[in-house]
Computed example of a mutant assay.
Amino acid sequence: MEKVRLNNGLSIPYLGTGTNTYGKENNDYNGELNGDFSALESAINLGYRLIDTAISYRNEAGVGKTIKDSGIPREEFFITTKIPADDQYIKNKDAVRRTLDQSLENLQTDYIDLYLIHKPIEDEEKLRLTWEVLEEYVGKDKIKTIGVSNFSIDDLNRLDSFATVKPAVNQIKSNPTEWNNEWIKYMFKEDIRPQAWGPMKTTEAHREVLGNIGTAYNKTWGQVLLRYQTQRGVIVIPKSHNPENQKANLESLDFTLSDEDMSQIDLL
């Protein structure tokens, strides 16, 4: 698996799997939990090691059990989870600590590789105390890496005004319908690694262009799209319940797009 080094010196796979519909009825984000994590089992068996979950997905425990039951050594995985910005989780430092401890218990692990703030916390004091506790857990080696999700440039600057540990990752929306290139350029300049959620969202016109490019490489439009992102340094976490699609996503890393093709995709 191709990896990239973060600003704290640790390496993260360039491609992982999201899990926000895993373990739920009808593969529906809002569906009742049903304990069916066969899609995650399939992904792990195929070689996925970057696993992305969140408290708001309600399935941390199922994700943790599936990883544990795989029998694969813990150190081979890079597990990400996220703390919500809701008051019950961040109203004070003790609440944040309880939340982080619960994630560790749910995921059946002594440490979490990457813990993100799921969305911007508007209250300055609560943002500060949440980040300070995340830094505290880094100091205790219970969390290896901390970062954010959906933080704008202004949000990142607010955090930078007091953080003593720089966020290593900002997970944002990035796909042909909304590349957010200026945002991504800023993160590269600040040594914060962009990670794309929803990376496969496209229109029919996008898929036609990407499919035409893929013909020369014997690749699908989806593989071209994922390779464009990873080749320019963006981590991706596509999610699929279909083993064939999961395998195809992994195979997006075994070819290199030409500069001309990269430029053409830039214009989508």
Rank of each mutant, 00 (worst) to 15 (best):
M1A: 06
K3F: 11
V4S: 11
N8W: 04
N8D: 15
L15C: 00
G18E: 04
T21Q: 14
Y22P: 01
G23R: 01
N26W: 09
N30E: 13
G31C: 13
G31L: 12
G35I: 11
D36E: 14
D36C: 14
S38E: 15
L40C: 07
L40R: 04
E41C: 08
E41T: 12
S42Q: 09
G47H: 15
Y48D: 00
R49Y: 03
I55S: 09
S56F: 00
R58E: 10
R58N: 14
E60H: 04
G62S: 03
T66Q: 07
K68E: 10
S70P: 02
G71V: 04
I72Y: 13
I72E: 11
I72A: 12
F77T: 03
I79Y: 02
T81D: 09
D86V: 00
D86T: 06
D87L: 15
Q88I: 11
Q88M: 06
K91A: 05
N92W: 12
R97M: 08
D101F: 06
L104M: 07
N106H: 15
Q108E: 05
Y111E: 04
P120I: 09
I121G: 02
E122C: 10
L127N: 06
T130S: 13
T130H: 02
L134Y: 07
E135C: 03
V138P: 09
D141C: 10
D141Q: 14
I143A: 02
K144C: 12
K144T: 13
G147N: 04
G147D: 00
V148C: 07
N150H: 14
S152Q: 06
D155V: 03
L159A: 01
A163K: 15
T164P: 06
I172F: 00
N175L: 11
Y186N: 08
F188L: 05
R193M: 08
Q195D: 10
G198M: 01
V209W: 02
N212F: 07
G214Y: 02
K219F: 06
W221A: 15
W221G: 12
L225H: 11
Y228A: 12
Y228P: 11
T230S: 05
K239N: 06
S240P: 08
S240K: 00
N242P: 01
A248N: 06
L250Y: 01
S252N: 06
L253S: 00
T256Q: 09
D259F: 13
S263T: 14
Q264C: 08
